[in-house]
Design a protein around this nucleic acid. Structure first.
Length: 589
RNA sequence: GGGGGCGUAGCUCAGAGGAUAGAGCAGCGGUCUUCUAAACCGAAGGUCGGGGGUUCGAUUCCCUCCGCCCCUGCCA
């Protein structure tokens, strides 16, 4: 038989197939295969319990019938699988030593872990992530969208999707009215190109919004500036362009550090000439209506959105983010023929996206446009020690640049302590990879929909379930191969016949290796990278146990070769996994 | 008022109908003349917010109560 990549998918389909032709089962039976507690086996099928209950049959008897049929089918050869019934009717599957060896021989490189056929294969998927606003530095609130979006984007791409990374910059909103007003009224010279021009812009914006809040006349002036900008007034546009340039200098610095790149950076301004068409079509189709002077969409069939409007053109005629989001959906269809569109933003925008999706659905159906699957990949808030959204003591958001620098500095101190003999250049490289990796992993390892409490120590921790722990495992494996002057690639072609017995730690490590596709599928299914993080942490743990228990470089060549193979596979999966999360790896640290 | 999220070990978090509820950190006890100790091993730590219900089985599903966070017409 062919050795399957993903045991859960494999066992599930085999059991389903065998049960389908078996008396006493029907198509309502689902095997429910999952990873088992190692005390009971490698994989377990729980589906018989629920099915027996529904059919009012004895679950253990039914399980026995199924096992007999599975054995008779020849789909699960005895040399690879053993089966048993336990408890009320669980079916446990145990993989033989031989199966483990053959799996190791079969799946040995990054490309071998890519599923051959996958529903995502060839799907065109624009993904909107990062998406900061111009005129402001990125702060800690921008971390999650960038980091989660990048990981999800990579995971989907790995499964064959054609991803279009779209940085939907907030360069076209109300804030520019305020900013333009303040720049003009203070005479601030954007041409001067200060290093810290972005900080000046933030100050100007703060001053402007203070005026805006207190003074109705300033409110009106700011609105006027915004309308002028949106109508293409040359002076306003010139200032606006400079604001963008200044902002991009700051963004690029961050993206470079994080290794994030985009295929499209269509800011909201990109859609300014397309909003008229959007408004016209929605009005013509009777989807949008004018209410209190604004153009809005109500959804009469919806319990809440029948009364809470989707506001797509303000009473003053200016467009807003709803308008540009509608226009963006349209261009994603017309320019890219998108199959699915993903939005990675924080959870507070759930209502906005629910309304957006409802509106797009009605509009596209009416017009006969292709309707893509649209998903809001939302995430929770990073909280301070007080349980509220994170702020510095002075009430400012923590700058992403400062956060990253602190992470790198801490890593530098640590690497200098642990490994003082490294060259300055190496120490700096390690500090950068470890610092950024730690920051990223701390965020990705959380369930994305949960809020989580930020602490410098936790986010920049270098032990426990952290990137440095995983990177350290990678570095130690490289170190082993360096020591004997060989390469992990020398162990991609191995003969399972000559490998002998794995031993306890080796077998336990191999079982963990085999579970990689299961964890990946789980992360993919819900687009939640933390499943992959948990898995990689457990894998690194299994490796560390193995590393301490079994010396790799031993005299006995068969043993040595087997253990080096385990090292090479662990290395491969750790690196593939970490790279999918967007985390760089190191050969030494 | 309506909607969403959350409440699990001292702290930070996993687990979402299944077997004796897990991990990290902190604390406690061990392991470096041997492939990197940023590591490993061990013991300890729990009324899964309270109460009801559904069932062979509930931390997980339903109801209810308590507590916290967020959203809810011209920011994104």
């Amino acid at each position: 038989m062919d050795i399957p990549l993903n045991l859960v998918l494999f066992l599930d389909s085999v059991i389903q197939k065998v049960a389908a032709s078996l008396e006493g089962f029907d198509e309502s039976f689902h095997p429910e295969v999952r990873l088992a507690d190692p005390r009971f086996g490698d994989y377990q099928a729980n589906g018989v319990l629920a099915f027996a209950k529904k059919q009012k049959q004895n679950p253990r008897e039914l399980a026995q019938t199924l096992i007999d049929a599975l054995q008779a089918s020849g789909e699960l050869p005895e040399e690879y699988f053993s089966m048993s019934i336990a408890g009320p009717g669980f079916i446990n599957f145990k993989l033989s030593n031989r199966f483990l060896m053959e799996w190791l021989a079969c799946y040995s490189s990054e490309s071998s872990f890519k599923p051959q056929e996958h529903p995502y294969q060839g799907k065109v998927i624009p993904i909107d992530y990062s998406s900061p606003n111009t005129a402001k530095q990125m702060h800690v609130g921008h971390l999650r969208s960038m980091v989660i979006g990048e990981a999800i984007q990579r995971i989907l791409r790995f499964h064959g999707a054609k991803m279009i990374r779209d940085n939907h910059i907030g360069d076209w909103g109300t804030q520019f009215g305020i900013l333009l007003m303040e720049i003009k009224e203070t005479g601030y010279d954007l041409d001067a190109e200060h290093e810290d021009a972005i900080e000046d812009l933030e100050k100007l914006y703060k001053q402007g919004s203070a005026k805006f809040k207190e003074d109705p006349a300033a409110q009106e002036r700011a609105r006027q500036e915004l309308v002028k900008l949106q109508q293409g007034d040359p002076e306003c546009v010139a200032i606006w362009k400079k604001i963008s340039q200044v902002s991009w200098r700051a963004f690029d610095e961050i993206y470079k550090l994080f290794g994030v790149e985009f295929d499209e950076t269509r800011g909201e301004s990109y859609y300014k000439d397309k909003v008229d068409r959007v408004c016209r079509e929605l009005e013509e189709d009777g989807i949008a209506e004018v209410s209190q002077g604004a153009l809005v969409v109500f959804h009469p069939e919806h319990p809440r959105f029948k009364e809470t409007p989707f506001l797509m053109r303000k009473a003053d005629g200016a467009s807003n983010y709803a308008t540009t989001d509608l226009a963006t959906a349209l261009t994603h269809i017309e320019d890219f023929n998108a199959d699915e569109i993903l939005y990675v933003t924080d959870g507070r925008q759930q209502d906005h996206f629910a309304q957006l999706f409802l509106t797009v659905e009605k509009w596209f159906k009416k017009r006969g446009y292709k309707l893509p699957i649209m998903r809001h990949i939302w995430f929770g808030t990073i909280l301070g020690e007080d349980g509220k959204a994170i702020k510095t003591r002075s009430g400012e958001p923590i700058k992403l640049k400062a956060l990253v620098q602190e992470a790198i500095d801490r890593a530098y101190t640590l690497v200098s302590e642990k490994n003082p003999n490294l060259s300055e250049e190496e120490k700096q490289k390690i500090a950068r990879v470890v610092g950024i990796g730690a920051l990223r992993y701390a965020d990705l390892a959380q369930n994305r929909t949960s809020d989580y409490v930020f602490s410098w120590d936790k986010m920049l921790a270098f032990d426990g379930n952290t990137a440095p722990y995983l990177l350290y495992a990678v570095a130690r494996i490289y170190s082993i191969f360096r020591k004997i002057g060989e390469s992990p690639r020398d162990y991609t072609n191995v003969d399972p016949e000559t490998m002998g017995s794995l031993g306890e730690a080796g077998a336990s490590l191999t079982r963990k290796l085999i579970a990689f596709p299961v964890a990946l599928e789980q992360a993919l299914g819900e687009l939640r990278p933390h499943y992959l993080c948990t898995y990689l942490f457990e894998l690194a743990g299994a490796f560390s146990t193995f590393y301490n228990a079994d010396k790799v470089i031993v005299e006995a060549m068969e043993t040595r070769k087997r253990r080096l193979t385990l090292c090479a596979r662990t290395l491969c999966i750790l690196e593939v996994g970490l790279h999918l999360l967007g985390i760089e790896t190191l050969e030494s640290m």
